[in-house]
Simulated scan of single mutants.
Amino acid sequence: MKKQKYARTEPNAYRQHAERQIRQGWQVGVGSMFYTLLAVTFNEYSSYINLRYIQTPDEFLVIAVLSGLIFLKSHLGALLMVVYFTVHKLILLASGRYHFASVMVIDLFLAYFYMRAARGTYLLRKPI
Score class of each variant (00 low, 15 high):
Met1Phe: 13
Met1Cys: 09
Lys3Gln: 14
Lys5Gly: 05
Tyr6Met: 11
Ala7Gly: 14
Glu10Arg: 11
Pro11Thr: 07
Asn12Trp: 02
Tyr14Gln: 06
Arg15Glu: 13
Arg15Leu: 14
His17Asn: 13
Ala18Glu: 08
Gln21His: 09
Ile22Arg: 03
Ile22Met: 08
Arg23Tyr: 05
Gln24Asn: 14
Gly25Asp: 03
Gly25Ile: 02
Trp26Ala: 00
Gly29His: 04
Val30Ser: 01
Gly31Leu: 06
Ser32Phe: 04
Met33Tyr: 02
Phe34Leu: 15
Tyr35Asn: 02
Thr36Ile: 02
Thr36Leu: 06
Leu38Arg: 05
Leu38Asp: 07
Ala39Thr: 05
Val40Asn: 09
Val40Cys: 04
Thr41Pro: 01
Thr41Gly: 09
Phe42Asn: 00
Glu44Leu: 15
Tyr45Cys: 11
Ser46Trp: 04
Ser47His: 10
Ser47Phe: 10
Leu51Pro: 01
Arg52Glu: 15
Arg52Leu: 10
Arg52Asp: 15
Tyr53Met: 09
Gln55Tyr: 02
Thr56Val: 03
Asp58Arg: 11
Glu59His: 13
Glu59Gly: 13
Phe60Ser: 00
Val62Gly: 02
Val62Leu: 10
Val62Lys: 08
Val62Phe: 07
Val62Asn: 02
Ile63Leu: 01
Ala64Val: 08
Val65Asp: 05
Val65Trp: 03
Val65His: 05
Leu66Gln: 03
Leu66Cys: 12
Leu66Arg: 07
Ser67Leu: 05
Gly68Lys: 03
Leu69Tyr: 11
Ile70Asp: 00
Ile70Leu: 04
Phe71His: 11
Leu72Pro: 01
Leu72Ala: 13
Ser74Arg: 06
His75Lys: 15
His75Pro: 08
His75Gly: 13
Ala78Lys: 00
Leu79Thr: 09
Leu79Gly: 08
Leu80Gly: 01
Met81Asn: 07
Met81Arg: 01
Val82Gln: 00
Val82Ala: 15
Val83Phe: 14
Val83Gln: 05
Val83Met: 05
Tyr84Cys: 01
Val87Gln: 04
Val87Glu: 08
His88Asn: 10
Leu90Ala: 14
Leu90Trp: 07
Leu90Tyr: 12
Leu90Ile: 15
Ala94Met: 05
Gly96Trp: 01
Gly96Leu: 07
Arg97Lys: 06
Arg97Tyr: 09
Phe100Asp: 04
Phe100Cys: 01
Ala101Lys: 13
Val103Asp: 03
Val103Tyr: 04
Met104Thr: 12
Met104Val: 03
Val105Phe: 11
Asp107Gly: 01
Asp107Leu: 02
Phe109Met: 14
Phe109Gln: 05
Leu110Gly: 00
Leu110Asn: 00
Leu110Tyr: 01
Ala111Leu: 12
Tyr112Ile: 09
Tyr112Asp: 05
Phe113His: 02
Met115Tyr: 11
Met115Val: 11
Met115Ile: 10
Ala117Ser: 12
Ala117Leu: 07
Ala118Gly: 10
Ala118Lys: 00
Arg119Phe: 09
Arg119Ala: 14
Arg119Leu: 12
Leu123His: 06
Leu124Met: 14
Leu124Trp: 03
Arg125Asn: 15
Pro127Gln: 05
Ile128Asp: 11
Ile128Gln: 10
Ile128Val: 10
